[in-house]
């Protein structure tokens, strides 16, 4: 459970930014990383992300598990990419600098490893900012932030409800599955996969029914307290934008502009050091 990332309350320049700012920043930053494959841009984004992270006062132990997990995922992806197409980089950069031939169709080719490095950087450019968004944004502000950037407050509230009731659903699931285990349901054993899936339905069915009941109660409660009455709604947790909020968004927009600008300069997504 400790592996699940969630909000850590602190007082730092990052924490003081409004939820909306962090959300907008995160989205723009993601787009900037998504469109480019330029090494220089990606490395800059990663380093800036690390600096932001240090500013937030969060500790290595807060993210250790997540970082290890993400590293694992990236490594699997890199291995798979190389295994399936060892010459992908050659196709992209148009040259081939073989360093050492390994076996069969696998060689260490500079272009391929440069491509794999860029692939990795594409994730690394976003991870620090994503972690900050998760760890330094009060979930209470999520819904209000979504609403602020133009998402309908009703959809925003769906997110709030999801966050509010995750612990309840988790507790339900835990209790139901314990009681069903006592009746002989076992999901981990080396039963046949199809049997295991069938058995899981015996746990999920009570969970679905109690969730439908819960939906009924919550929607009544919301309606009785006037949800959906007006076209707009206010948020008690919403904070007004300050100077630093505008500065943060400006930084993100500039990054996006740089990312897009280099695409024009490069005449494509890639920075090619081989020509």
């Amino acid at each position: 459970m400790s592996a699940t990332l969630s909000y850590i309350k602190k007082d730092s320049p990052i924490h003081r930014l409004t939820g909306s700012t962090k959300f907008i920043f995160f989205l723009i930053w993601s787009v900037a990383a998504m469109i480019t494959y330029d090494t220089r841009v990606l490395v800059t984004m990663f380093l800036m992300g690390v600096i932001f992270f240090v500013m937030s006062g969060l500790k290595w132990k807060d993210i250790r598990f997540a970082v290890l997990f993400m590293t694992w995922l990236i490594v699997i992806n890199l291995v798979a990419l190389y295994a399936f197409a060892p010459e992908q980089g050659v196709g992209i950069y148009g040259t081939r600098h073989e360093i050492v031939h390994l076996f069969w169709r696998y060689s260490i080719v500079a272009e391929e490893f440069f491509y794999l490095f860029n692939f990795m950087m594409k994730y690394l450019a976003v991870i620090p900012v994503a972690l900050l968004f998760i760890l330094a944004t009060n979930p209470s502000e999520f819904a209000a932030s979504l609403n602020k950037i133009g998402v309908s407050y009703k959809v925003g509230y769906s997110v709030a409800i999801a966050l509010r009731y995750i612990p309840d659903v988790q507790r339900d699931f835990h209790e139901i599955s314990q009681a069903q285990q006592a009746r002989g349901i076992d999901l981990s054993k080396k039963d046949k996969l199809t049997d295991r899936l069938k058995n899981s339905a015996a746990i999920l069915f009570p969970l679905v029914l109690s969730s439908l009941q819960r939906i009924e109660v919550i929607s009544n409660a919301m309606e009785l307290r006037g949800f959906g009455k007006n076209k707009k709604r206010t948020w008690i947790v919403e904070r007004p934008f300050k100077k630093c909020d505008y500065v943060a968004i400006l930084v993100a927009v500039l990054m996006l502009a740089v990312s897009a600008g280099f695409m024009v300069i490069n005449g494509g997504r890639y920075f090619n050091p081989f020509v």
Binding site: S140, M222, F227, N230, R233, I236
Partner: peptide, 19 residues
């Protein structure tokens, strides 16, 4: 089921937010 807000503060204010 009736406690919709993420915190006590938000839940008490819920109907005012809607107004």
């Amino acid at each position: 089921g009736q406690f919709i807000g993420m915190t006590v503060l938000e839940d008490i204010a819920f109907s005012m937010e809607n107004d």
